[in-house]
Amino acid sequence: MAEDAAPRLNFAERYRKLLLGGVAVALFFAAWQAIFVVVPFNPLFISKPSLIAAGYVDLIESGDLFHDLAVSAVPFVYGLVAAVVVGVPLGIVMGWRVRVGYALDPLMTVFYASPLVALAPLVVIFFGVGVGGKAAIIFFLAVFPFVFNACAGVRAVDRLLVNVVRSLGGSEWDLYLKVIFPSVLPYIVAASRIAVGRALIGVLVGEFFAASEGIGYAISRFGDIFALDRMFGCILTVMVIAVALTEGIRWAERAAFPWRAEQ
């Protein structure tokens, strides 16, 4: 096959995927706005982009949106940090010490497989309605991806590297620092992607259940008073945040660990 000099793709071809996606989103919102020309608009049932945008500006200006987001963010961060701090070492020990792995694996699988969200009411009863209860729910939901991925990461460590470090006189600590940790890091980052999703569920569950403050509570509150425009605005905000977090981590994974295939 003759090797031609590859023709320089023009702008449209290079960014084809992005452009098509952008066009689709724009079309969607345009259609959403336009459909009410023919279909009767019931503000108690649905909202339209123009109203949503107006309500959104309102929410931002009054500071309500940021206040709610901040309130939701506190247990989210606490829970996630606790999940990393507890989950990763636990996973590493499970992967490194084979017997510990044998002992804890079925237990962890049982926990991961059962819908732990079902225990959320109990957690709230035990830990209270405040930040503690919500952070606890988020912790329990987010910890298992870290445990399993850290364990898998350790088990995937190249034995050759371990033997090299050992034969050059490395201590156990050297092993952890120079071989295990760098090998496990991509797995942990991948786990954080999954854990963030589960943590968001935890935030919402906590707020719907112990309805006090936060973005989840705002959504249900706006629903109760049929303020559909603000409700849609808050829902879209949560969607944007969720996408930003998940795709942001995915991007970081690709940038930092380019050799890892897309999971």
Partner: peptide, 15 residues
């Protein structure tokens, strides 16, 4: 698809 997949379904429940 990316947006809906990343968001917890629970957020749509009140709606």
């Amino acid at each position: 698809i990316t947006a809906f997949n990343a968001t917890p379904r629970l957020v749509f429940l009140p709606l």
